[in-house]
Nucleic acid binder design. Structure first.
Lengths: 312, 312
DNA sequence: AGGTGTGAAGCCATTCACAGCG
DNA sequence: CGCTGTGAATGGCTTCACACCT
């Protein structure tokens, strides 16, 4: 994402050489003074912060007051080092030897994510998906009230969906301005998506969530995120195929390994090997883990702690 | 998007890409010849391949027979070097001095993504979203026919949605086996998601697309990708906030920067920067969004070839 | 000339490992 | 002693730049 654009190079403090010297000649020359906290939060971390926030909200409702990085990371499906690193980008709000106060973390993450203000949403394209989105309670409950719905179909205009009447897209500028819409959701057929996007942009909307399977072209001060269901499916398909290949491989390799083993090979620790990558969702520690197909197991392997397979 | 794997993108979950960097010479020993090329395609590249495929399909329908990396990359919203690198992972199917044959590329990408076989889909949870998904034509048209629908609500059982009657989730194992379901879609309320996921897994489904805002725990031979709308919104929210900060920054810095330029600063190559890109999702986002520059331009930037912006 | 394919370099993110504080 | 916070190491992805083919 568009991160760190702007001024001179994003001076990341990763200068190995004389680091201690002055790390800011270029920047200074740029007219960009050292400036406040050079908080450059990695895009990947931002996405995870949103996940932590959801988990924390659940914990808070359950009355949990304090939590350690180990527990929170397990609940969020990442490893604890990553969680601590992510949290360190927003500040130091933990207590050593204890953990984090749930309430504090929620507040800080909300602040960083800009959730202290409300972001009204407009959904364009009230077909199946648009209906579902208009009715999706998760938006409102998380501070993103759906404030406007648009379509071109005359039969739909005026009909309330999820409590909001549908307006004609020709009124998009006026209505978005009136209702303070800051996020636009494109849920139209692909053929209409770019046009709708252009209209949203000229209506002043600077953030777009696109469900149409097209690559939207926008000015670079507009942020677009895309959700493409077919692409998600295809990625899963790829993994199915890869897994099938691997199964074949390991079946084939198994016999060879046995032969070699019986030949007297030494067994080193590093014979523990990672297999297919899992998708990382593994909550467990060992996030690194990727595991190998445990499949057909023929006695040559056993499943270890977190799914790793130990060759013996 | 947001992928759960952890990573990727999307929240992106970031997938620990297969660390298959294995040094396994053992393979040679096991009678397994060099085997085909140890094709380790980066997760991020897989997600983009799916995008290229969609663009190529459109081009093919328009009768385009050949295309260069420059053109294709622009249509897909990435830069040409990345596109060529991605394509190189699957082989060399281009003609130097000419470009790629659309038909060939489509076939090869489909092969790599495992799209030569059909992947039947089961949708669990026939609420608003489930309805939308069951009716979504993009699945069937791309080789992912929806073959089964499940819910627990008695009133829904037997009712056809998108042409498929809804079955009770208790029959999930039998029906998934009968219809050869290989991908499960979880579209239930969060409270039911883990249970539904467990049922899908025991029914033999090894790939899951999760729309519920919870982190699913699964065995590591199961692949989960997650689409979390609230998280997407929050990421956009973060960028709204960041942009606001930046606007203030650049207004302040503007005079300084201009002064330096006119002062004769040299323009290095690294001042060429990309417009916007997003990923993810983990990517990976995963999830990759993108945006291109075109315009509002304030004189400090001009749009370059493929959406890159050149600072001058 | 035109454009692909790819080693090499650079950048960013993840993971390690431990100092430091409660 | 436990757990956070973080420099340093590692590894993957992206970008560069050009050899090489047509």
């Amino acid at each position: 994402m568009t991160v760190q654009r702007g001024r001179g190079r994003g001076i990341t403090p990763s200068r190995p050489a004389d680091a201690v010297t002055e790390p800011m000649p270029a920047v200074g020359a740029d007219g960009e003074p050292v400036r406040d906290r050079a908080r450059v939060i990695p895009e990947a971390a931002v996405a995870r912060l949103a996940v932590y926030l959801r988990v924390l909200s659940g914990l808070s409702e359950q009355g949990v007051g304090t939590i350690s990085s180990e527990e929170l990371s397990a609940a969020a499906g990442v490893n604890s080092a990553k969680l601590r690193k992510d949290l360190s980008y927003i500040g130091s709000y933990g207590t050593r030897g204890v953990g984090y106060e749930v309430r504090v973390l929620i507040e800080e993450i909300e602040r960083i994510l800009g959730l202290t203000r409300k972001h009204s949403v407009a959904v364009v394209g009230i077909g199946n998906l648009g209906h579902a989105l208009a009715n999706y309670g998760g938006f409102r409950s998380r501070g993103f009230p759906v404030a406007a719905l648009f379509d071109v179909e005359e039969d739909l205009i005026g009909v309330p969906v999820g409590g909001i009447p549908v307006d004609h897209i020709d009124d998009i500028s006026r209505i978005c301005a009136e209702r303070g819409v800051s996020i636009g959701v494109v849920a139209t057929p692909p053929s209409a998506a770019q046009l709708v996007c252009d209209r949203l942009v000229s209506a002043g909307v600077r953030c777009i969530l696109n469900f149409a399977p097209v690559v939207l072209q926008v000015p670079d001060d507009v942020e677009v995120r895309k959700v493409d269901l077919a692409v998600e499916m295809q990625i899963l398909s790829f993994h199915v195929a890869r897994r099938a290949d691997e199964a074949a491989d390991s079946a084939a390799a198994a016999s060879g390994a046995l032969a070699e083993d019986s030949g007297g090979g030494a067994h080193r620790a590093d014979e523990v090997r990672a297999g297919a990558a899992s998708t990382g969702r593994d909550a467990g520690r060992g996030a690194t883990a990727n595991s190998r197909a445990s499949g057909p197991v023929n006695g040559a392997e056993v499943t270890g702690v977190n799914g790793m397979v130990i060759r013996r």
